[in-house]
Every structure is written in structure tokens, then in C-alpha cells.
Amino acid sequence: MLKIRNLHAMIDGKEILRGINLDIKAGEIHAIMGPNGSGKSTLASVLTGNEAFEVVEGTVEFNGKDLLDLSPEDRAREGLFLSFQYPVEIPGVSMTNFMRTALNEQKKYRGEDVLSASDFLKLMRDRKNLVDIDSDLTNRSVNEGFSGGEKKKNEIFQMAMLDPKLAILDETDSGLDIDALRIVANGVNKLRRPDNATILITHYQRLLDYIIPDHVHVLYNGRIVKSAGKELAHKLEENGYDWIKKELVG
């Protein structure tokens, strides 16, 4: 599904990603962990097309297409989704209008029929139940006045609405209390299918108690320095990241 080869990216003249290689297949859940400043969020931003970052080298293939060649909206329409670490508040744009516009534009791109108003509302209801989000949130402006937890739940709701092939959850667990974390994890697990995939970007192991990854990668200084199964996450939780730094030096 996703093939990243030797990806280098910079912001403000500073190289943050220094040669990332990663393969993700349908049906898989990958966790990307690493200390602060290692480049985790940059990787998410570069994959979704944030123009603040400049890709200087490398390729990214997404379902056979050159991802880096696509605009942010076309990446989304191809089935890529980012759950933002800091979802943006947009006063004046209603959640309903936002989701309807997004969903219909994606459908048009794929040559599918747009949803009728009643089918759309039905889908909204259905997806709200699936991710256990308060009904009231979708009647408001996008993220406006939402608490931190509500914003993260809202990201998962949008993911449920848009049904992406590959979802990147950028520190969706940070700042969540245990109840909200369960709701978020539940949503992700329910949406899991053999034909989609998920990348969990996280600093902590806790989320991985609820969403069991197939692969865990450690990102350090802009490179993936270690990849293993889910047991790696436990080891990181117990021992921190210092042993990896030592291994690299040694």
C-alpha cells in the first residue's frame, strides 16, 4: 500500500527526515515511536502534503501512485487520512457542511455518486454511533470550543466518515484521559479491515495496549533505527529510549 524510500525532508533549511524507508501492507497496523523531535510529526505532515515542508530526496508510492506528486486534497481523495495532532478550529464552518463537502468531493474524484441529503445524515448518525461521539458535536462549527478530548474524538469521527485506506494518527493519544483514549482506540479497532491500514504515531506505549500493532518502529534523528513486533513497545516503555541511542553509538 505505502512504500517510502530514502525520504529526506526539510523545514526552514533544517533537515528533519534523513532517509526514511518504510513498507506498509493492507491490513497492517504500524506504530511509529520515538523521542520528541525525532521527526514523527514531520513524517505525517510530509505524507499528507503540508507545504511548509520541503521534500529534498526520496520517493513515496501509495497504491501505485507517486504520492509526492499529488496535492493534499488529491492525497485525501486517494484514501490517505491524517488525524491531526492539533486539530484546527474553524468558526463559521459547520461540521455537517464540512463533512458533506469533503465526502462529496472525494466521491466525485473517484467517479462515485454523491450522497443525497438523507443518505448523508443517515451515514452521519451511523458513524457517530460507531465512534461514540456526542451528537451535539456535529451541530457545531468545526472544532470550535471543543475540549482536547472532543477534538481527538472528532478526528476519529471524520476518519469513520471518510473511510480511508491508510490512516495516520499523529499523537492522537496525547492529552487524552483514559475514557477518551478507550473511545478513540475502540473507533480505530472497529474501522480496521483487511483492506485498510493504520499508522499510529505516539510517544507512549499506553495507546498500544488498546490498539495492538503488527509492527513497531523507532524513529530517531530522522531515521527509522529499529523495527520489530509489538514487544518493542513494551521494552521502550520499561527502558526508555536511551538504550537505543547507546546501541547506535556502539
Binding site: R75, F84, E105
Partner: peptide, 27 residues
């Protein structure tokens, strides 16, 4: 707001449509 613009585009909304949504939101 560029952040809002990127947020909308990252959901599959075209730049033109995102422009209109944000202008409308402002008004």
C-alpha cells in the same frame, strides 16, 4: 488562515472550495 486551509484540503476539499468555505465562515 493557512492552517485551516490545510486542514480542509487534507480532508479532500479542493483549494477553491476551501477558499469559499473559509470566506463564508468569515462573513
Amino acid at each position: 488562515d493557512e492552517n485551516a486551509m490545510f486542514y480542509l484540503r487534507a480532508r479532500g476539499i479542493s483549494k477553491e472550495e476551501a477558499n469559499i468555505l473559509l470566506m463564508y465562515a468569515f462573513a
